[in-house]
Amino acid sequence: MDEPVCCVYISVVIIQDVPADPLSDVLALSGLSAACSVRLVAGGDWALRFRPIALKFNVVQRGSCWLLADGMPAVALQAGDCFVVKGAPFVLASDPGVPAVDAAQVFADSPHAAQHGSGDDVALLGGSVTLEGPAASELLELLPGAIVIRAQPHEVSPLAWLLDALDREWRAGQAGARVVCNDLLRLMFVHALRQHIDTSDVGALGWLAGLRDPPIAAALRSIHAAPGHAWTLPALAAIAGMSRSAFALRFRQSVGQAPVTYAARWRMRVAALRLKNTASSVSGIAASLGFLSDAAFGAAFRRVYGVSPGQYRRS
């Protein structure tokens, strides 16, 4: 008698025609990665000074503490709050007046977890975020020295869900946990950046402010969806539904540069990524981005990066 056959069917849903998303495009070209590296538990009177060399992203898992960073007053942090510090020393403390100890001493025995002070009043999870791609400067130049993202109600906050998942993975220690933790931290950083865009003063956001202006956002989506198109002011103004003069002024006020200039620079960002991450020839990349000759492509690339496409790829 034949043995019964067990069949497992996996359903895969493919989402097509995902709309262009300028922030996702910039993040993709920024080489965003995250490493969930530290868990700190502290209690009593305590203060630690951190000296990061990259973007540090941390979240308060439990309890409360204070953040002291250069250029901003002391900030009280509560459970669920996140903060980003851009490569500068900062202090975490039970009270702003407590003298700080170098965190390197506390983490000397274990670089990934430490207990400091007396008790476990507060717990934090955090790690490093790196932006190393061709568009990294597009984001790094706009981020202030420190950003604090306040917790939202748990039922409406993706950050709260991600924090729960991150805590479970960190504690479980299952196979692949480090990769999962890194990906969760990366997602948390993106959500924190999105919340920063939605809640910050427009004047402090640079080109990101354009994402909050529907006509300008429509033009940005079109530029990012077709980087090889020879965009003109009339064409972009028509997409925004505005006159050319009004659109040009509004775009410059929101983004900080003229529409055609932004389109040309974005084309070069895409070119740089393809030079770095693909085996396509320089001529092929030039043609894919709408250039009629290698010479024209080389001149445009050199204006932005200061070197030829070939030199950029070799470096």
Rank of each mutant, 00 (worst) to 15 (best):
G126M: 02
W266K: 00
S222R: 10
H112A: 15
A54G: 10
R39L: 11
L208I: 10
P215V: 04
A160V: 06
P215I: 05
S283Q: 09
V255N: 07
S30H: 04
R51T: 15
V148W: 00
G176E: 09
G80E: 11
L139D: 10
S157V: 01
L55H: 04
M188I: 10
S281N: 03
V5E: 10
P214S: 07
R39M: 15
L23G: 00
G97C: 08
H224D: 01
D2R: 12
V98Y: 02
A177Q: 10
A248Y: 03
L211S: 08
L159C: 03
A76R: 15
A104R: 15
C65F: 01
L184T: 07
R51H: 14
G117Y: 01
A295W: 08
L193K: 05
S283D: 13
Y262Q: 13
P99C: 08
G71F: 02
D17K: 11
V18L: 07
A299G: 06
P22E: 07
R150F: 01
L55G: 03
V129H: 01
L184W: 05
T278E: 00
D21M: 07
L249W: 08
L273F: 06
K86N: 13
F297P: 05
G31M: 10
Q115I: 13
H196K: 13
D95L: 06
A240E: 11
R314N: 08
K56E: 14
V202I: 12
D45N: 12
L292Q: 14
M242R: 14
S222K: 14
I147F: 01
L125T: 07
S118M: 07
L139G: 07
A218G: 06
Q257N: 05
A35P: 00
W207P: 10
G173T: 10
S137V: 13
I149Y: 00
